Simulated scan of single mutants.
Amino acid sequence: MKAAENKRAVSVGIFVLIGIVILVTGIMVLGGQQKRFVKSIRVNAIFDNVGGLQAGANVWFSGVKIGTVRKIQFYGNSQVEVTMNIEESSQQYIRKDALAALSTDGLIGNKIVEIVGGSTKAETVEDGDILHAKASLNTDEIMATLQENNNNLLRVTTDAKKILDEVLKGKGVAGAVLRDSTLSNRFKNTMANLQAASSSAAQVTKSLSTASGSLNQFAAKLNMKGTLANDLVSDTLIVRDLRASTARLRDVSNTASEATDNVKKATEKLNSSNNAIGSLLNDEVVNRDLKSTIHNLETSSQKLDENMEALQHNFLFRGFFRRRAKEEAKQKAATAAASPDTNLKK
């Protein structure tokens, strides 16, 4: 009887021992996952909305799990303070200017806290420090944004369908172009004209490029020493001579202008009948009188010649004319006699 009871007691003791071992092992495993048996510091973060974050959630830094959420409580009027246990071994990598942000473990996983950022110029966090929270979109906001985008896309699709229906019915410019052959031909002609204009513009551009090259060549010639163009640009003596020549040309031009004015004035006087030469050139009465006077003078001269001829044959003046003829003959003979002696002396 006692043997059976002892056997039963031993079996119960073994089962109890196994249960205790399993319990201790579970506690150790869960404690290891929750970082319960690791030295840690306490860091806080204040959020406007934790989006369903719970105590025991993991804390990540650069993709590595460094702690867990210890406590969540309200802070102030409507904010939430999250207390986190961070391993001391990770303390040296987290700076005081780092940010705490809410994220998810996977696409649709549990909420976690992710510590991001931080510069090397800032000091490392200490026990009891408060990190700034980084605003992030929660799932509801993302779904609301997606819903709004879907509504906008639906409106755009509906509007595009209406426009295509109007075009297929021949309404509007696009519909008229598609259905009206005349308008379509005009549109083609317009495009052809635009293409021709574009070709002309390309030719003009090419011409401008050629002109630019010519200008560059001309500028190069101007810069070439020893050429007339370079001398005109750089030689001050030539420039001074050109200025002097220009001044002389200006004086000559002024003189010519004055001479032209004088000729013009003389011509005006010649065309006027207020002077003798103008009257002779322009007044027909004066010309007629002058012609008559010349004719009378010729007639008088002819009559004078006849009178002189008559006097030569008159016995009263016949001796005078004979003596005059003899004197003229003597003068001619003396002149003829003096001519040979002059030639010999020479």
Results as ranks from 00 to 15, higher is better:
Leu249His: 01
Asn274Tyr: 02
Ala247Gln: 15
Ala259Asp: 09
Val263Met: 10
Leu249Ala: 12
Asp261Ile: 12
Thr236Ile: 07
Arg250Asp: 13
Ser273Gln: 13
Ser273Lys: 13
Val252Gly: 03
Ala244Asn: 13
Ala259Met: 13
Arg243Val: 13
Ile277Ala: 14
Ser279Thr: 10
Thr267Gln: 00
Thr246Lys: 03
Asp251Gln: 06
Arg240His: 06
Arg250Val: 02
Ala247Pro: 01
Gly278His: 00
Ile277Arg: 08
Val252Cys: 02
Arg250Phe: 05
Ser279Leu: 15
Thr236Lys: 10
Leu249Trp: 07
Thr236His: 01
Leu280Asp: 00
Ala259Gly: 09
Arg248Ile: 10
Asn274His: 08
Asn274Arg: 00
Ala266Cys: 09
Asn254Gly: 05
Leu242Tyr: 00
Ile238Glu: 00
Asn262Ser: 15
Arg248Tyr: 01
Asn271Thr: 07
Ser257Asp: 04
Asp251Tyr: 08
Arg240Asp: 10
Thr267Cys: 02
Ala256Ser: 14
Thr246Val: 11
Asn271Leu: 15
Val239Gly: 14
Thr236Leu: 02
Ala244Cys: 04
Ser257Tyr: 00
Asn262Glu: 15
Lys264His: 13
Thr255Pro: 04
Asn275Cys: 01
Thr260Asp: 05
Lys264Met: 02
Leu249Gly: 05
Thr267Lys: 10
Ala259His: 03
Ser253Arg: 07
Thr260Asn: 08
Arg248Lys: 05
Ala247Glu: 08
Ser245Trp: 11
Asp251Arg: 04
Leu237Trp: 14
Lys269Tyr: 10
Ile277Cys: 07
Lys265Ala: 09
Ile238Ala: 00
Glu268Val: 03
Ile238Pro: 00
Arg240Leu: 10
Asn254Thr: 14
Asn254Gln: 14
Val263His: 06
Lys269Trp: 00
Val252Asn: 01
Gly278Tyr: 08
Ser279Pro: 04
Ile277Tyr: 12
Val239Ala: 15
Thr236Asp: 04
Thr255Arg: 09
Arg250His: 07
Asp261Gln: 13
Ala276Gln: 06
Val252Trp: 04
Thr246Trp: 11
Asn262Met: 14
Leu237Tyr: 14
Lys264Glu: 06
Leu242Thr: 12
Ala276Cys: 04
Lys269Val: 05
Ser272Asp: 09
Ala244His: 07
Lys269Ser: 12
Asn271His: 06
Ser279Cys: 04
Leu270Trp: 03
Ser253Gly: 00
Ala276Glu: 04
Thr267Pro: 01
Asn275Tyr: 00
Lys264Ile: 02
Leu280Phe: 12
Thr267Asp: 01
Lys265Leu: 08
Arg243Met: 14
Arg250Asn: 11
Val239Phe: 12
Ser257Arg: 06
Asp251Trp: 12
Lys264Val: 07
Asn274Trp: 02
Ala247Asn: 10
Lys264Cys: 06
Asp241Trp: 01
Leu242Met: 06
Arg250Ser: 12
Val239Asp: 12
Asn254Leu: 03
Asn262Gln: 13
Glu258Ala: 14
Ser245His: 01
Arg248Leu: 10
Asn274Glu: 09
Gly278Arg: 01
Glu258Ile: 15
Asn271Trp: 13
Asp251Thr: 09
Glu268Met: 04
Leu249Ser: 08
Ser272Met: 03
Gly278Met: 05
Asp241Leu: 11
Gly278Thr: 00
Arg250Gln: 12
Lys265Gln: 07
Ala276Pro: 04
Ile277Trp: 13
